[in-house]
Amino acid sequence: MSRKPAAPQAALTKQDFEALSDFRYQLRRFLRFSEDAARAEGVTVQQYLLMLHIRGSADRNWASVGELAERLQAKQHGVVALVNRCEAAGLVSRKVNPDDRRVVQIHLLAKGERCLNRLAMLHRAELESLRNTFRVARITAFNDDGADRL
Rank of each mutant, 00 (worst) to 15 (best):
M1V: 09
M1K: 06
R3I: 12
K4L: 14
P5S: 11
P5Q: 11
A6C: 04
A7G: 02
A11Y: 01
T13Y: 11
D16R: 04
F17W: 13
F17A: 09
E18S: 06
S21K: 02
S21L: 04
R24W: 10
Q26K: 14
L27P: 03
L27G: 08
R32P: 05
R32L: 13
S34L: 15
S34C: 09
E35L: 10
A38E: 09
A40V: 02
E41T: 02
T44A: 06
Q46L: 14
Q47T: 14
L49T: 01
L50S: 03
L50W: 03
L50V: 02
M51V: 05
L52R: 06
L52E: 14
I54Y: 00
A58F: 08
W62R: 05
A63S: 11
V65I: 10
L68F: 02
A69W: 03
L72F: 07
L72S: 06
Q73T: 04
K75A: 05
K75P: 03
Q76W: 07
V80C: 03
A81N: 01
A81Y: 05
L82Q: 03
N84Q: 06
N84G: 04
C86S: 09
E87M: 14
G90N: 08
G90F: 15
V92L: 10
R94W: 12
V96Q: 08
P98C: 10
P98H: 01
D100W: 13
D100F: 13
D100P: 06
R101A: 12
V103A: 00
Q105M: 05
I106D: 01
I106T: 00
H107A: 08
H107Y: 11
K111Y: 11
G112S: 12
E113N: 03
E113Y: 10
C115Q: 09
L119G: 07
L119R: 00
L119H: 02
L119N: 04
M121C: 06
M121Y: 14
M121S: 06
A125D: 00
E126C: 09
L127I: 07
E128G: 01
E128H: 02
S129K: 03
S129L: 01
S129C: 08
L130Q: 08
R131P: 03
T133H: 10
V136I: 10
V136S: 14
A137V: 00
R138N: 07
R138M: 15
N143D: 14
N143G: 04
D145T: 07
L150D: 14
